[in-house]
Design a protein around this nucleic acid. Structure first.
Lengths: 226, 226
DNA sequence: TGCAAATTATAACGTACGTTCGATAGAGTG
DNA sequence: CACTCTATCGAACGTACGTTATAATTTGCA
């Protein structure tokens, strides 16, 4: 069972794109990207790597300080708390993946292709950011109070974006299946990827997305018809 | 997305069975169940609950002390370290589920039924111990050194028990599929269960195991034949 | 260049962690 | 009952945590 070396080096991962409608820009009230923004983005990258490697609770702010080269207190100029760090990371991931999905689905109308598009978007996005993927799924129930509520709402939104696609497909093909089990099984498949994916062994994210889509769709298509 | 209230109450979960060939008996060199063993088993239950609720790193020994009613120092009479606690929990789970699987497969020869049996064994076992299930998968890469190696070996063994079944089925049905993606997708499905399963909504573990088996098997059966 | 704002770091706060030690109480046995 | 072993706990150890206050330094701009 080979493990992805996802916590080894942050250079393996694309930087958080500061040119887009990022969380950081929102935080700064639509201010153009500044030195502050760039520094924060870098800190978030390091935080993602550290949280991925040691887990949120196991990772300390001193770990982050060492990894980023900024003093412990200096970090707090950029965000209010450790919890806020995790919130920023998770919020950005959810909003970005959903935005990308929205774009991809714009010109797609066939129900099956839309489901395939969902899977491909998810697999490609998260396998381009394996560390972030782990932080998103592994630290799923860490945040509390308002921050946790907001992330939970984004997660629910993402869940529904998938469930709705399956529902449309179910109706289109007259399938008789347990939607919930199907949707959750699909999420299990795609969210488990970070524990086993290995580019050298498993091929590109696109190939893998196709394979997973095939298994899943054929599985539900073989369900008894209404 | 309703969440199983898996961390609410340890009485919802069966006790670790001390009558079987448990890890604790092994630890005590085949000594019959004693007061020590009973106390340790109870501590392990509480630890499972606490680790499930707060995560291994987020849970402290003081949390466990409070939950179990035993003093902080008193706990250390029963085991050497916090890490050893997690090891004992995970080892017991792996060895038990594999033993149960061995028993169930004894009189089964049909390749498809054997795969269905694997899935059913896993789903039923772990949904009877949802907290333990979460601790097993969530704290997958926490243990280090010799303890971590041993658990990793058990995990690999369990993985192979499944992969081998799929391989036999693949040959029996002349399937042309990516075994690795298939096996891992299946593990994704069944290991994700703890995040969404709700007895009132989703039915019994047996029903769910059948549904997941159906989706999976039909998915791989529809693969191109050699 | 000088000044104000932004940024950074040292030191510390208050609290918590996993674990150990030694004293004592409890249990078991002859 | 006396003795031995088991079990328990208060106190403490050495270390670490997330965060804050404040002084020092750097950056940006007129």
């Amino acid at each position: 069972m080979s493990q992805l070396g996802i916590c080894a080096n942050i250079e393996n991962e694309r930087s958080i794109d500061m040119g887009s409608t990022s969380t950081v820009s929102e935080l700064s009230s639509a201010r153009p990207a500044t030195r502050f923004d760039r520094r924060l983005a870098k800190i978030l990258e390091h935080a993602t790597a550290i949280f991925c490697e040691k887990g949120y609770e196991g990772a300390s702010m001193r770990d982050l300080s060492r990894a980023s080269g900024m003093s412990l207190a200096g970090l707090y100029y950029y965000f209010e708390s450790k919890e806020k760090l995790l919130y920023l990371i998770q919020k950005d991931l959810f909003t970005t993946v959903m935005e990308l999905l929205r774009e991809r689905l714009k010109d797609v109308s066939d129900p099956e292709v839309r489901v395939r598009t969902f899977i491909q978007n998810h697999v490609e996005f998260f396998l381009s950011k394996p560390k972030a993927m782990k932080v998103l799924s592994h630290e799923d129930d860490v945040l509390s109070d308002e921050l946790g509520k907001e992330i939970a709402a984004l997660k629910r939104q993402y869940y529904h974006s998938c469930a709705d696609l399956i529902e449309v497909l179910k109706r289109d093909k007259n399938l008789d299946l347990n939607s919930r089990a199907a949707v959750m099984s699909l999420f299990g498949m795609i969210n488990w990827l970070h524990t086993w994916y290995n580019l050298r062994v498993d091929g590109t994210p696109r190939v893998l997305a196709t394979e997973i889509s095939d298994i899943f769709l054929r599985g539900i298509y073989s369900a008894p018809r209404q």
